[in-house]
Amino acid sequence: MNEALLNIQKRPAKKGGLVLNRGIFITGTDTGVGKTFITAGITYILNKSGVSSCSFKPVESGGRRGKEAFLSNDSIFVKQVCGLDEDVENMNTHCLENEMSPHIAFELEGQDVKVSDIKRDYMALCSKYERVVVEGCGGIAVPIKRDCFYVDDLIKELELPCIIVARASLGTINHTILTVEYARSRGVDIRGIIINGYEGGTIQDDNIKTIESATGIYVISKVSKCSEMEDADCMRDVFEKCIDFERLKMALEWE
């Protein structure tokens, strides 16, 4: 592990907060970068390592219709892949029908984001699990409420450190550096970067070196593609090979 980069990342432990050092927020450099896949991976590895954990999706656009309300596809995915014994309704606060930026979906459906409800649901999971893996919607600058509440605002409301999910392929240097710099400008505590869809090779390896050098943030995992995304066993195998519990714990400064 690159000790110089780890030293850059070191910071005093945060005092106070909703639940001290209990959760982690997963954001991405873009929509479709694989946040849900990585959320499932982290949740799975934590549980496999003996740390009871659950995922939480505060806001999702484009859920599936249930008997009484729309259900979060992302929460259903994580629940099934990780074999979680938790009701999907408890893993998501706002599930919107329209698959679009949350601020537009909220407006079209005549709803409003309720931060107090999100905090309530997050705290309920924290009371049941040692760790809660919170997944954002889209990238870190996505608006949840027009002109006044963005994903980074949600991260700060929950007082959580953040991991950024980035692609391995062409364009990732620009997207990742911009995401890191925006997050820093907004006071978000970044603990690491996870590269998703890693296949190896000179270009992808150089992308990673360049991102680490430019941001001072360590790439804590390089997660390879799963050949059969419908196969839970395939995904779990990828998680076990690519996500190291000790490295994750060190980046998050968990005891």
Score class of each variant (00 low, 15 high):
residue 62 G to K: 09
residue 64 R to H: 09
residue 67 K to M: 11
residue 67 K to V: 10
residue 70 F to H: 10
residue 72 S to M: 12
residue 73 N to D: 15
residue 74 D to I: 06
residue 74 D to F: 09
residue 75 S to N: 07
residue 75 S to L: 08
residue 76 I to A: 05
residue 78 V to P: 05
residue 79 K to F: 06
residue 82 C to T: 05
residue 83 G to S: 11
residue 85 D to K: 13
residue 86 E to V: 15
residue 87 D to N: 13
residue 90 N to V: 06
residue 90 N to D: 15
residue 92 N to Y: 05
residue 93 T to F: 13
residue 99 E to R: 12
residue 100 M to T: 10
residue 102 P to K: 02
residue 104 I to S: 04
residue 106 F to T: 02
residue 106 F to E: 03
residue 107 E to C: 03
residue 111 Q to K: 14
residue 112 D to K: 13
residue 113 V to L: 14
residue 114 K to T: 10
residue 114 K to P: 08
residue 114 K to W: 12
residue 121 D to V: 02
residue 124 A to Q: 13
residue 125 L to R: 01
residue 125 L to C: 09
residue 125 L to N: 07
residue 126 C to T: 02
residue 126 C to V: 05
residue 127 S to I: 02
residue 130 E to D: 03
residue 130 E to Q: 05
residue 133 V to L: 09
residue 133 V to N: 00
residue 135 E to L: 04
residue 137 C to W: 00
residue 138 G to E: 09
residue 140 I to S: 01
residue 142 V to W: 09
residue 143 P to R: 06
residue 143 P to H: 01
residue 144 I to C: 00
residue 146 R to H: 13
residue 150 Y to C: 00
residue 152 D to I: 07
residue 152 D to T: 12
residue 153 D to P: 08
residue 153 D to M: 10
residue 154 L to I: 08
residue 154 L to W: 05
residue 159 E to H: 12
residue 159 E to C: 11
